[in-house]
Design a binder for these strands. Structure first.
Lengths: 237, 237
DNA sequence: CGCAAACTTGATGTTGCTCAAGCTAGGTGG
DNA sequence: CCACCTAGCTTGAGCAACATCAAGTTTGCG
């Protein structure tokens, strides 16, 4: 049913590069590597659906995924965008709590859930590692609640751009690549695509950003963007 | 600085009742009990502030706390209400990510962070226990993101009431005690207190709930309330 | 070069916010 | 014991922000 694209030549896992293995000993890393397989996923494909049985745990190696929940009438809330180094699929008992879909082409490292669970008890420090990853997700979720509940459209867009900038931290150029479409941004920020588009245009008119193309944003005045993200409105708006 | 109310007679910890100890062996439970002390906190007091050094981990034994974040200009987002059995203070590196304040009188079981951290590595199954608690919080946070980003006022209030009803699950009476004030509800749902008040009145007029007093809600038509929470609008609205 | 999907922009509508009074309940002091 | 007083809640009128509906415009791909 889902659009899995199996790797033609399943390359062996380069475990020491995995976030999951950070801080573990050589033998444990080897054990984790033996358990995982790479999986490729083309852009705009579903990895799993909310309510599916959670059979695997994944670490993203390359590309970007989005996670979202849907109301019966189709309203969608994107709960997060995950890029290389993020884990997913661990936070569930049996069933996934959200749908995961690729934004770009993605490479994942996949672990069978049963074997993965055993590691949590057997490898010292591994549970702590997962705990830290889950805390990070929780912190992001709390920031997002503040954004969704209390920020206006300009603050939401500014916060989103600052987040994207922090994520890649391409200190060189001030130009940012935005892989997701306007619909995904809108569903992440609790806005409509029209408001996203209008607000970006407004920031461009005020000289805070440039928009050379829909997927590229030039951060012309990052300081003001950070001000706007926190509600520190500048008189010029 | 904070309004701690020390227990006059520090009763010994009844560790087997603690959520934190669920599934652990006798000796580990004893160890945790030896580490904890009870602490009382009167209603409307601050337990810790966002940005404070996280020195303790707590389990709530009695009463209710709220967690919230604040923007520079004072806008507030309540990220959660915690009642008996919930843990707090674990999800941080060094600094607290939110402010914790009591809603009612509260009894807490407090653990020094340094010793608590050691347990995570030394007691098998303990990290897994914390992981499960953190997943629960994360699941709640994701549901709240959907609520804040995509639900209207009626759906938000209905969801809130259903959540409160599930929490106590007082299957007997259909009357619910709401310990927090309208301001807290508003800041939890991303609304103003006026909208909270108006929406509750509207549900009362439609016969879905009764409001014998501001702190009491009678669930007259729970099925419809659950429909409303998920956006399944009934024609009568 | 042509086409479809995605994005932008404009006009209008609705929801929930703001501002402004009342109302109610619980606690205090006479 | 009762009247007052205050904090919190409710209700109303007008308004602002964002959504909705409806064209255009651009982009990227075949």
């Amino acid at each position: 049913m889902y659009a899995y694209t199996a790797t033609a030549r399943p390359a062996s896992i380069d475990a020491k590069t995995l976030v999951m293995c950070r801080g573990l000993g050589q033998s444990d890393i080897a054990r984790i590597a033996a358990m995982g397989t790479y999986q490729k996923l083309a852009a705009r494909r579903t990895l799993f659906c909310e309510g599916d049985t959670a059979e695997n745990v994944y670490e993203i190696t390359k590309g970007m995924l989005k996670l979202f929940k849907i109301l019966p009438d189709g309203r969608r809330q994107v709960t997060g965008f995950l890029s290389a180094g993020h884990l997913l699929g661990i936070a569930h008992d049996e069933r996934h709590l959200y749908t995961a879909e690729s934004v770009t082409d993605v490479v994942l490292c996949r672990y069978p859930r049963s074997r993965f669970d055993r590691l949590v008890d057997e490898v010292p420090g591994f549970a702590r590692r997962l705990l830290a990853a889950t805390f990070d997700e929780l912190r992001a979720a709390q920031d997002q609640m503040l954004l969704l509940g209390r920020k206006g459209a300009v603050e939401k867009i500014a916060s989103f751009l600052v987040m994207m900038a922090d994520r890649v931290d391409q200190t060189g150029g001030d130009e940012l690549h935005i892989p997701m479409g306007r619909t995904d941004i809108a569903d992440y920020l609790g806005l409509t695509i029209e408001t996203v588009s209008r607000t970006l245009s407004q920031l461009r008119r005020n000289g805070v950003i440039g928009l050379p193309s829909p997927t590229r944003v030039a951060l012309l005045d990052r300081e003001q963007l950070e001000q706007l993200a926190e509600g520190g409105y500048v008189e010029s708006l």
